[in-house]
Design a protein around this nucleic acid. Sequence first.
DNA 1: CCCACTTTGTGCGTGCTTTCACAAGCGCGT
DNA 2: ACGCGCTTGTGAAAGCACGCACAAAGTGGG
Lengths: 231, 231
Amino acid sequence: MISRPPRPRERGIPEATVARLPVYLRALQTLQDRGTATVSSEALARAAGVNSAKLRKDLSHLGSYGTRGVGYEVEYLVYQISRELGLTQDWSVAIVGIGNLGRALANYGGFGTRGFRIAALLDADPGVVGQRVASLDVGHIDKLEEVVRERGVSIGVIATPAASAQGVAGRFVEAGVTSILNFAPVVLNVPDGVDVRKVDLSIELQILAFHAQRRADGDGREAERAGLEMT
Amino acid sequence: MISRPPRPRERGIPEATVARLPVYLRALQTLQDRGTATVSSEALARAAGVNSAKLRKDLSHLGSYGTRGVGYEVEYLVYQISRELGLTQDWSVAIVGIGNLGRALANYGGFGTRGFRIAALLDADPGVVGQRVASLDVGHIDKLEEVVRERGVSIGVIATPAASAQGVAGRFVEAGVTSILNFAPVVLNVPDGVDVRKVDLSIELQILAFHAQRRADGDGREAERAGLEMT
DNA sequence: CCCACTTTGTGCGTGCTTTCACAAGCGCGT
DNA sequence: ACGCGCTTGTGAAAGCACGCACAAAGTGGG
């Protein structure tokens, strides 16, 4: 299989690059399923929706894994990116808040494309606790610390209402979880060393609305609506 | 086609700022609910989880809406940001793919905090079409063009499986929708002038995993945490 | 009116990101 | 063996974004 010993473990991959590696990885896996053996930066960039120079620079942060005149070996690159992202080990995920969204997340197959395992589902509502969702029994939120400890949870997902999110985050942190994915529409307050990422549907919509409005203003006559002064 | 070639003095708000305006807006609305009349950049920045200088610079792109020595009038700022984001008008949203995620989105109240109205739910599965979800009847995907036209849909949300997403996106574009929010794990290919934003759960998880791994690698010494042992 | 105090708006230095452009490297055909 | 065509990897430049630090502008007390 693939087992070369080189270790270009350069420290410090730019954050912008890290955010794109999963996109490259997915594009590569699609190519792999199709049986493609090698791919050029140009082709991969197109599949990932980015500029090819950017892709090459991104990959160069991992090491020199391409062959000039040929391109990149798909399988090898999949492995290298997976390793860099930490997907060669398993991560246990706990989801708190089993409402509509929590259920969707629990049932989302691609969730655990590889490397991620849903270890627990928790909720505060007695009517929900005990239900079976996605082959797991929903536990009570009171067991959070216990579950984190016993099942080695390292990533916490918060899908609760906004009002409960900060409390859950605090308990995750207290229990030793240092990676949190937050779907609740609030700004979480956590100590240094804890990594929080947020996914916020209404923020995305509002950004879309901004651009849509700008397009509309530019297209027609903007005189119709509010008077925007130019300085 | 929308091209603004040599506009020397574009009235452009930086993209990074646009992405934060919704966060400020939410923080302001929370303050407003609490009855706060004015707020300093320092206090608002804390509530939004950003640096106060950054917040002031962001707001300065909208105009000089603050009062030195006092701060910002909450209500006025809420209005200004709302206007800038285009929330003073209504946006009709169509959601395609009424699986677990689509249902969650449809039922997500905060979705339409203000300015957004879910105009239609569509699916391809005959077993789902006709169901009543969030006070709406799920329609068949075949009616997409008709629905977009008749209900003035301007934002399309794609919550289908990956394989169907590109097709749905194409139909949205063909029907005249130029703002798309994509939850499917694929890179959408759309013509210039169409704005696509993506929300991708597994990408977020992978980014978290990357940082978690790096922390684990680097720490080496601090095995204080429960359950995180190394050799 | 004047002064002490508060808070905004922004010039500026710094560091990160993107993009261009091209030399260096590799495979293949001759 | 050699040169040609293709593709990577990367300097260098341009563009953004961030945050400090401070002048400008406003408030309130005496």
